[in-house]
C-alpha cells in the first residue's frame, strides 16, 4: 500500500485545490498562479532530465514549449470553434471535453519530434556547441511561427478561451486546472520512475562518462533520443496547458528569456534532483509573484537574490540529492527510490 501513499496524497491535494476553485473560495488570480506553478514544475523537471541527469546544457526549452502550445491551440481552435481562418468547427464544440487530452498529447508529440532537431546533432556534438544548437532551435521555432501568417504570425494566436468555455459548458468544473494538476502528477511520476530504473540511469552514465557508457553496453544514441524527446515532449505539454491558461499566445512569449527561467529553476534546485526542481519551480514562481509590486526592480532584486543563493549554496538547493536523502524517514513512501538495495 505504501507505494501508493504519495500518489493518494497528491490526488487528495489536487482534489482540495479543485474543490477550492470550484467553490470559488480562492480568487482567480491565486488560482492562476497555482497553475503557473504547475507549468513551471513540468518545465523544470523535464529540463532537468537533459540538463541535470544527462549533463547537457540545453538553453532552448521554451522553443519546445512553443511547439506544443501552438499545435494544441491550433488543433483545438480548428476542431472545436468557428473562426475566419479555419472556417466552421470540424467537430461539435461539446466534444472538446473528451478530445482536449488528445490534442494536448499531440502537442507533446509534435514538440518531441522537434526535439529530434537537437537529439540528432547531439550524437556528435557536446557541451557548449550543443547549447548553441538548442539556442538555434529556440530561435528557429520562434521565427518560423512569426512567419506563419495562418496562425497569426508575430501577432499571436487566440481563441483558446472559447475552447475552455465550451468544455465548461458541458460540465462546469475548472478543466484547465484539472489538466494542469494531472499533467504535473503524470510528469513527476513518469520522470521519477524513469530516472530510478536501470534503463533510465543509463543517461546518468552518459553524463558521467559517455565513452565508458557506450563501450559498456549503453546504446548512447538511443538514450539521447529518448531523453531529448521525453524532455521536449513534456515541455510541449506544458506549452499546451500554458496556452489554455492564458487563452492567448504569441511567439514573443517563448524567447530565450522563458528558457532562461526554466534553466534557473533547474540549477537553483540542483542538477539531477527531481525534488529540487519541483521545490525551485514552486519557490521561484512564488518569489516572482511576491516581488511583482516592485515592477522593474523585481528583475534586479530576484537575480541578486539568486546570485546570493548561488554563493551560499553553489550546488543549488538540493545538490544532487533528493528529498528522501535529506529526510530518510520519507523513503519508505518511495520504495523504488535510489539508495536502498
Amino acid at each position: 500500500m505504501r507505494r501508493f501513499t504519495s500518489l493518494i496524497l497528491y490526488a487528495l491535494l489536487s482534489l482540495v485545490i479543485i474543490t477550492a476553485a470550484q467553490g470559488r473560495w480562492v480568487n482567480p488570480y491565486i488560482l492562476q498562479i497555482a497553475m503557473f506553478v504547475g507549468i513551471n514544475i513540468i518545465l523544470s523537471t523535464s529540463l532537468n532530465l537533459v540538463n541535470g541527469y544527462m549533463g547537457e546544457f540545453s538553453v532552448g526549452h521554451a522553443g519546445f514549449m512553443a511547439v506544443g502550445a501552438y499545435i494544441t491551440s491550433v488543433l483545438n481552435v480548428w476542431l472545436f470553434s468557428s473562426t475566419k481562418v479555419f472556417g466552421p468547427a470540424v467537430l461539435s464544440p461539446s466534444s472538446a471535453i473528451y478530445l482536449f487530452p488528445v490534442t494536448l498529447i499531440l502537442g507533446g508529440i509534435g514538440a518531441a519530434v522537434v526535439g529530434l532537431l537537437v537529439a540528432i546533432p547531439s550524437f556528435r556534438t557536446r557541451g557548449d556547441y550543443l547549447a548553441i544548437i538548442t539556442l538555434a532551435v529556440n530561435y528557429i521555432v520562434k521565427s518560423s511561427i512569426e512567419n506563419m501568417q495562418v496562425i497569426g504570425g508575430a501577432r499571436g494566436f487566440m481563441g483558446m478561451s472559447g475552447i475552455v468555455n465550451a468544455m465548461q459548458e458541458v460540465v462546469n468544473v475548472p478543466w484547465v486546472l484539472i489538466w494542469v494538476l494531472t499533467s504535473v502528477g503524470v510528469t513527476v511520476w513518469l520522470l521519477h520512475r524513469f530516472v530510478n530504473s536501470t534503463y533510465g540511469k543509463g543517461i546518468v552514465a552518459i553524463r558521467d562518462d559517455e565513452i565508458a557508457a557506450e563501450i559498456m553496453s549503453v546504446d548512447t544514441r538511443r538514450m539521447k533520443i529518448v531523453a531529448f524527446m521525453l524532455s521536449s515532449g513534456l515541455a510541449g505539454i506544458a506549452g499546451g496547458l500554458f496556452a489554455h491558461i492564458l487563452g492567448y499566445i504569441n511567439p514573443g512569449t517563448f524567447t530565450i528569456m522563458k528558457s532562461t527561467e526554466a534553466l534557473v529553476m533547474v540549477y537553483l534546485g540542483g542538477m539531477g534532483s527531481l525534488s529540487g526542481a519541483i521545490l525551485s519551480a514552486v519557490s521561484l514562481t512564488l518569489i516572482l509573484e511576491f516581488f511583482r509590486p516592485l515592477q522593474v526592480a523585481k528583475w534586479v532584486v530576484v537575480p541578486l537574490l539568486l546570485i546570493l543563493l548561488m554563493l551560499f549554496r553553489p550546488e543549488g538547493i538540493m545538490g544532487h540529492r533528493e528529498f528522501t536523502d535529506v529526510f530518510p524517514a520519507l523513503r519508505r513512501f518511495f520504495p523504488s527510490h535510489g539508495k536502498e538495495k
Binding site: 536501470t198 534503463y199 540511469k201 543509463g202 546518468v204 552514465a205 553524463r207 558521467d208 562518462d209 565513452i211 565508458a212 557508457a213 559498456m216 553496453s217 549503453v218 546504446d219 539531477g272 544532487h320 539508495k339 538495495k341
Partner: peptide, 17 residues
C-alpha cells in the same frame, strides 16, 4: 572510467543495459 556519481551497485547494473 567508472561512473562516479552512481553507486558501485548501479555501476554494475547499468552495464547490463
Amino acid at each position: 572510467r567508472l561512473w562516479n556519481s552512481l553507486t558501485v551497485f548501479d555501476n554494475l547494473c547499468i552495464s547490463q543495459h
